[in-house]
Design a protein around this nucleic acid. Structure first.
Lengths: 340, 340
DNA sequence: GCCCGCAATCGAAGCGCTTCGACAACTCAC
DNA sequence: GTGAGTTGTCGAAGCGCTTCGATTGCGGGC
């Protein structure tokens, strides 16, 4: 492993010049810079991480805490982990993994040993124990998700209310007057933070736009996922011309399957929109319009805020909401028209 | 953040004494040690990570490279990541995440910047590009999985051949004479390393024990996963009294569903054993006997080997196979007996 | 009573980098 | 031509720890 000393010698300059040339923190003559960069490349030089941390008071590392609970949805979770890692690399930061019980103890450990410059909190629960911890440690911390008590915290999340409203607007604009909402199982509305936000946004905007809106929160298990099927059947038979889905991917598939079973074509007879999904709604048959929760968007914003905090910038201790985006895949159309 | 200096002052000793007391590398009088530990606790002291890396020539970090390909099975993958992290923490090591393209470039980066003491390689492909890289970098590297060309590498994996043989033995011991093997789709036998090993082990042991064995490698998709259903039906109708499954979890469920559809009770009429599964086979209906691939076993061994290499110990550059273990859940019984 | 060996402790030398302040060597306005 | 300002470079002082070698004090063998 080459050291800065060797690069300096190879380029015929002093150690500090190499450091400045490589960091760009002082101006260096083009010629000298070129020689240094060449020498560094030649020797495959990279600053020693430990030395850099010590001298530079920067670790270039973010800790990522993820308790990984039993009910964590692995594919979605992985997408967030991945997105965080990629976002961090853009700033030349690495991700240190803090899992399970270590998600809390690890935060303390990392904070007091100066192993990381900041903490990113994933898989946030409403009553997350990492909330108190985050207030106590002196490390920039960003929550990806919103705990119930988020006073004084920096959080990042999709604007779920606006997302639901966007779905409603789309349907209202198309002329739908009666829509059905298929949500998560009822328990999710106590255990999680965002399902109520979706519901609230949906019902509020539906009322504003004068839409008839019926909400069903079916259990997602049971034989053949009957509750979801029943919900779908009940809603369309009651006259809903559009369905808004905010549930897991299996329930999406079941809902579509039930519509097919009922002989209701999408979108000719029933429009379908998914809200807040982390999975690919275009992969369903038929592909489903979606106002998704995009992991990369959340994670990029989180990393960006964390970076700003590390750099001493001002970041409001608040929930930073991400504007929703409508992704059309052909599953919505004006109501009542079987016209092909 | 407290520094060693403050601990030393609080305990009334020198800095080096604190270091020795906390690391245990030299003998310290019980009384002094107690005072130091107390002071450290009081001040919530933890050695600064950067300083420790620099002075101690140890980062206490393992890099975990995981390309996370499109076809990666997220839940299984998460289980490995988690298991690695937990195993590493036992040795007071942290895990640094290297994802995607960074899985390779990151290895180089981490190696030449001294950010980690070793590398753990996950999600290994047969022709993995990290193989060459591992040979070039001067960092202890352990593969969790076996690439085709593993000459000179330290690899860890379940002994898939022995696992399959163990399943066969179980069935042979119970008196079965004709078994069916439902494997992964054919392409998996070119793209992955372990499916052929399972097949080889199974067929060889079946031959040794004089069992009739029929292998089917059904596609795992298609309408209603018909190929798997067809495979199961064909096998039992041809007289197989036991099924060995080595396929994804959805195919397991489908196979069981098909047996139920056919009216063949498990285990009274058909015995079923799963080989090499990373998911919970006891959660099926009925629960299925299994010779599983246990993430924690693989990851613990991998971390242990990596630790030994970091400590300068001798570790043979070879595939370290993990002995399989039979987990009975009541899905096997002697053949031909409907006796409940 | 002397010397040896051992246990317990300390001081100081780095580890490889960043960064501060200093200092030439220039440029340029007047 | 002089003084002020600018640009490019250097030396040296740490960053907070580990670890080596030295030192002190003590008990025991002879």
């Amino acid at each position: 492993m080459a050291k800065i000393h060797e690069v300096a010698k190879a380029a015929g300059v002093s150690i500090s010049t190499v450091s400045y040339a490589l960091s760009g923190k002082r101006s260096i003559s083009p010629d000298t810079r070129r020689r240094i960069e060449e020498a560094a490349r030649e020797l495959d030089y990279r600053p020693n991480a430990g030395a850099r941390m010590l001298a530079g008071r920067r670790t270039q590392i973010f800790a990522l805490t993820e308790p990984f609970r039993a009910d964590t949805h692995a594919p979605a979770h992985m997408a967030f982990v991945l997105a965080t890692s990629i976002a961090a690399r853009r700033f030349e930061y690495d991700i240190l993994l803090l899992t399970e019980e270590e998600a809390s103890a690890g935060m303390r450990r990392v904070a007091s040993s100066g192993l990381a410059d900041g903490v990113l909190v994933l898989d946030v629960a409403p009553d997350d124990e990492r909330v108190d911890l985050a207030r106590r440690i002196a490390l920039p911390t960003v929550f990806i998700g919103v705990p119930d008590d988020h006073e004084g915290l920096v959080c990042v999340d999709l604007d779920f209310e606006a997302a639901a409203a966007l779905a409603v607007d789309r349907l209202a604009d198309l002329g739908h007057r009666s829509i059905g909402f298929v949500g998560h199982p009822p328990t999710a509305y106590e255990k999680s933070n965002f399902p109520p936000r979706v519901r609230r946004g949906l019902e509020a905007r539906a009322a504003e736009r004068g839409l008839d809106c019926t909400t069903v929160l079916p259990e997602s298990d049971g034989p053949r996922r009957a509750p979801v099927r029943d919900a779908v059947r009940g809603l369309v038979e009651a006259g809903a011309t559009a369905l808004v889905l905010h549930c897991d991917d299996a329930s999406h598939a079941v809902a579509l399957d039930e519509l097919a079973t009922l002989g209701r074509r999408v979108p000719e007879e029933v429009s379908v929109v998914s809200v807040g999904a982390t999975f690919d709604t275009a992969a369903f048959h038929p592909p489903i319009d979606s106002v998704p929760l995009v992991p990369s968007a959340s994670c990029e914003l989180a990393v960006e805020l964390a970076m700003r905090m590390v750099d001493g910038g001002e970041v409001p201790a608040a929930v930073h909401l991400i504007a929703p985006e409508y992704r059309a895949h052909g599953s919505t159309a004006p109501p009542g028209g079987a016209s092909d």
